[in-house]
Simulated scan of single mutants.
Amino acid sequence: MHVSVDEDRCCGSGQCVLVAPAVFDQRDDDGVVVLLDAEPPVQVHAAVRDAAAVCPAAAITVSEEA
């Protein structure tokens, strides 16, 4: 799995951090998403997919290929 984020699209809702805190964080100054792990371990793949699905700005892209 490969994860990417579009910081320009991010609205800072923080849903990704709530769903997958091992993979996503937020900048302190504006709340924009910070990608902590672009190729997360298989144990968190389901959470990453969920985070992408709940992102209100569709700022998270998940590719199933590493």
Score class of each variant (00 low, 15 high):
residue 43 Q to E: 15
residue 45 H to L: 13
residue 8 D to F: 05
residue 61 T to K: 04
residue 48 V to L: 04
residue 41 P to V: 12
residue 66 A to N: 10
residue 8 D to Q: 08
residue 51 A to N: 10
residue 12 G to Q: 12
residue 38 A to D: 13
residue 41 P to Y: 12
residue 27 R to P: 13
residue 25 D to S: 07
residue 54 V to G: 00
residue 26 Q to H: 04
residue 14 G to C: 06
residue 16 C to W: 01
residue 31 G to D: 05
residue 12 G to E: 11
residue 56 P to R: 02
residue 14 G to E: 03
residue 17 V to A: 09
residue 64 E to D: 12
residue 53 A to K: 05
residue 46 A to Y: 06
residue 57 A to Y: 03
residue 52 A to C: 08
residue 17 V to S: 01
residue 8 D to S: 09
residue 22 A to E: 13
residue 5 V to K: 01
residue 57 A to N: 05
residue 21 P to N: 12
residue 14 G to Y: 06
residue 1 M to R: 06
residue 12 G to C: 15
residue 10 C to F: 04
residue 51 A to H: 01
residue 22 A to I: 10
residue 38 A to L: 11
residue 14 G to A: 06
residue 4 S to E: 01
residue 15 Q to P: 03
residue 39 E to H: 10
residue 11 C to T: 15
residue 57 A to H: 07
residue 22 A to Q: 15
residue 56 P to I: 04
residue 28 D to G: 15
residue 23 V to R: 03
residue 21 P to A: 14
residue 6 D to E: 09
residue 48 V to P: 05
residue 63 S to F: 05
residue 65 E to A: 14
residue 55 C to W: 02
residue 43 Q to M: 11
residue 25 D to H: 05
residue 1 M to W: 04
residue 36 L to T: 10
residue 48 V to T: 01
residue 19 V to C: 05
residue 66 A to H: 13
residue 56 P to A: 07
residue 65 E to G: 09
residue 43 Q to Y: 10
residue 61 T to Y: 09
residue 7 E to K: 12
residue 2 H to M: 06
residue 27 R to W: 11
residue 47 A to F: 05
residue 17 V to N: 04
residue 49 R to M: 03
residue 21 P to Y: 12
residue 32 V to M: 00
residue 46 A to G: 14
residue 17 V to I: 11
residue 24 F to H: 00
residue 66 A to Q: 12
residue 17 V to P: 03
residue 13 S to Q: 03
residue 48 V to Y: 00
residue 28 D to S: 10
residue 9 R to E: 13
residue 33 V to A: 02
residue 16 C to Q: 01
residue 31 G to Q: 06
residue 50 D to T: 07
residue 50 D to R: 05
residue 18 L to Q: 12
residue 27 R to Q: 13
residue 38 A to W: 15
residue 2 H to K: 03
residue 10 C to S: 06
residue 63 S to V: 09
residue 39 E to D: 08
residue 26 Q to M: 12
residue 45 H to A: 14
residue 51 A to C: 12
residue 12 G to S: 13
residue 13 S to V: 02
residue 43 Q to R: 15
residue 54 V to E: 04
residue 62 V to R: 00
residue 47 A to K: 09
residue 35 L to F: 08
residue 33 V to Q: 00
residue 42 V to I: 14
residue 53 A to W: 01
residue 60 I to C: 02
residue 34 V to C: 08
residue 39 E to L: 06
residue 53 A to N: 07
residue 41 P to S: 11
residue 31 G to C: 04
residue 37 D to G: 06
residue 9 R to L: 15
residue 12 G to P: 11
residue 18 L to Y: 11
residue 61 T to R: 15
residue 44 V to Q: 07
residue 18 L to S: 15
residue 53 A to H: 06
residue 58 A to Y: 05
residue 53 A to I: 00
residue 55 C to Y: 00
residue 4 S to C: 01
residue 36 L to C: 13
residue 46 A to D: 14
residue 29 D to M: 15
residue 50 D to P: 04
residue 28 D to W: 13
residue 40 P to R: 06
residue 57 A to Q: 12
residue 25 D to E: 07
residue 46 A to L: 15
residue 56 P to F: 07
residue 63 S to I: 07
residue 23 V to I: 14
residue 19 V to I: 14
residue 33 V to C: 02
residue 31 G to S: 06
residue 11 C to S: 15
residue 6 D to K: 11
residue 57 A to I: 08
residue 25 D to Y: 09
residue 41 P to Q: 13
residue 12 G to L: 10
residue 38 A to I: 11
residue 57 A to F: 04
residue 29 D to R: 08
residue 17 V to K: 08
residue 56 P to S: 03
residue 64 E to W: 05
residue 28 D to M: 14
residue 15 Q to T: 05
residue 42 V to C: 09
